Amino acid sequence: MTAGETQTQTQTQTQTDTATATGTEADRFHERLKAFEGRPAATAGRAKDAVNEPMIRHWCEAMGDTSPAYTGPDAIAPPTMLQAWTMGGLSGHTDRSSAYDELLALLDGAGCTSVVATDCEQEYLRPLRPGDTVTFDAVIESVSPRKTTKLGTGHFVTTRMDVRANGAPAGTHRFRILKYAPAAPRGPRPAAPLRPRPVINRDNQGFWDGVRDHKLLIQRCTACATLRFPWLPGCNACSSPDWDTVEASGAGTVFSYVVMHHPPFPAFDPPYAVALVELAEGVRMTSNITGVPYDKVRIGLPVQLEFLRVDDTLELPVFRGEAG
Rank of each mutant, 00 (worst) to 15 (best):
D74P: 10
G167V: 03
D132R: 07
I140C: 04
T118M: 02
H155P: 04
D27T: 12
T66R: 12
A275S: 08
G72H: 09
R298L: 14
G64V: 07
F319A: 00
P78F: 01
G154D: 04
S256W: 02
Y70V: 07
A35D: 05
E61F: 13
S249M: 08
R176K: 12
P271F: 06
A47D: 05
V254N: 03
A26C: 09
L106C: 01
L178E: 02
D311H: 06
L90Q: 15
E281Y: 01
T313L: 15
Y124V: 01
R228V: 10
D95Q: 10
T71M: 06
R186A: 11
D209L: 10
P302I: 03
G131L: 05
F307V: 02
L33W: 03
L305D: 04
Y100F: 10
N204R: 01
E281K: 03
R129Q: 11
P68I: 07
R197K: 08
M161F: 15
A181Y: 08
Y124A: 03
Q11C: 12
D132W: 04
C60A: 04
T149D: 05
R164C: 14
A44K: 13
T135W: 01
F255E: 13
L104M: 11
D65Q: 11
H262R: 13
K147E: 10
F255S: 14
D312I: 09
E121Y: 07
T245D: 02
P190Y: 12
R146Q: 15
R228G: 10
G210H: 02
E25S: 13
G234S: 15
G321Y: 00
P73F: 05
F175E: 01
L217T: 08
A138V: 07
P188F: 15
A280H: 08
A84D: 12
E306V: 08
A237H: 12
T148G: 12
P169K: 02
H214W: 06
P193V: 10
P130Y: 02
L232A: 09
A323K: 12
V246F: 06
D65I: 14
D101H: 10
A280V: 11
A184T: 10
V157Y: 02
Y257N: 00
T20M: 14
F229G: 03
S142W: 04
P230F: 02
C221P: 07
A237C: 11
E25V: 15
H155N: 05
F255H: 15
K296E: 09
Q219V: 04
G4Y: 11
S239M: 13
L227N: 01
D27P: 10
T222K: 01
P198C: 01
F156T: 05
L106D: 02
T22E: 15
S239G: 14
P40N: 04
A77F: 02
M63E: 05
T12Y: 03
E315K: 10
W231M: 03
D49V: 13
L33Y: 00
Q83F: 15
E281V: 07
V246C: 10
Q205E: 13
P196M: 05
